[in-house]
Write a protein that binds this DNA or RNA. Structure first.
Lengths: 211, 211
DNA sequence: GTCTATATGCGGATAGAC
DNA sequence: GTCTATCCGCATATAGAC
């Protein structure tokens, strides 16, 4: 039916605007205007802006959960690159979440709490991943080093895309946000620890991404 | 005179509130209420909220510039630890800047542009620093590795304190934000490259900060 | 310098007609 | 479902008295 169509368009439009201009800067008026509908109509589908944010966050969360499941089979550096790439794709599609996290904290505490839970999950997964890579001999790292690597990986996947916008020139509007490059950058954290074979793969990526 | 006193108090109060609740969530009303003055009075001293933000950012910028000057003499890992610690102290005192960077981008474009300039400066400084440490033999890294380390250091100093809030339990209000720990965490990026002597210092820090 | 009072606009959200 | 019209509250900012 047309109803759920509008509902879906609201979510898509909101997501695009949140990503482009930031959660606090995008009003329900603006969302409705962008879609060419009235604010009354918008509030018929979502009683509050908060509900829109919650729905979008839930999708983000589900998306990452799916990636996590599939990512359990990482056994080598190139698997890891793919897993990271997919992860950055997802984070990029919902980039408003991490970029406006401070605002989320103060205005949408329930969603922020879920975000904390997500972060804890990410840490556990990353830790398990690094331990596995160490056990497989893909990386040569002590338990402490593996632990630190896991933290660095989670830190980077969470914050890198936001940071990248600061460094790249003011082409803030026209941002393709190369998620492959982001994945490569994350992998470089492992550089000092990888075995020679994996090292060759990193060099291959390097030639691909660094001019 | 009392006038400039009030002006200063406005800046201090604004800074504290921005840090505690976020730039977009703190209104001029709230600042005035917190100080026990009227909004009219506040606007007598600062015609717009934007001016307050610009003054605070300028102080932040100056503060980092001072640290940069003093930091030119880093010749060993313990020097670097001190320099990083001072830097995190400054970033922590003005943490609203990086935490609400997305909002700064959309609502205070001029300040955001200055922030970009600052970031470029940071990158150059970090690069020079890593090259120097490599030349001194404190770290054993190729030119590429030194370059990557510099990027990682800037990324970490910029985003770590924001990320930390996400990971630590919901004691978001009562956050001492251990800047020494942040500096130690940043140093761990160098771990794989340091010479044995510096390694000993890192181990000392580790025993101090990691339970 | 500091106050009270007020103008103006925007954002979220609702009422009721169609 | 969708619209128009409107309410309410808050935020920035100003005017004018003290």
């Amino acid at each position: 039916m047309a109803s759920s169509n509008t509902r879906e368009r609201i979510l898509q439009t909101s997501l695009a605007l949140f990503n482009a201009h930031g959660l606090p800067s995008v009003s329900t008026h603006r969302i409705a205007a962008e879609m060419g509908i009235s604010t009354g109509n918008l509030h018929y589908h979502f009683k509050t802006k908060r509900l829109i944010v919650e729905w979008l966050f839930r999708r983000f969360d589900d998306r990452l959960a799916t990636i996590d499941e599939a990512g359990g089979g990482v056994r080598a550096i190139d698997d890891l690159w793919l897993a990271l790439h997919l992860r950055f794709e997802a984070i990029n599609e919902y980039r408003f979440v991490y970029r406006d996290m401070a605002h989320l904290e103060s205005e949408y505490p329930e969603t922020a709490a879920k975000s904390r839970t997500l972060m804890a999950r990410n840490l556990l997964n990353a830790r398990a991943l690094c331990e596995k890579l160490a056990a497989l001999g893909v990386i040569n790292a002590t338990a402490d080093e593996a632990e630190m690597l896991a933290l660095q990986i989670v830190f980077t996947t969470t914050c890198w895309l936001s940071f990248e916008r600061l460094v790249t020139q003011n082409a803030a509007s026209t941002r393709p946000s190369d998620t492959g490059l982001a994945a490569y950058y994350t992998l470089t954290l492992l550089t000092p620890y990888v075995d020679p074979q994996s090292r060759a793969y990193l060099d291959y990526l390097r030639s691909k991404y660094v001019q």
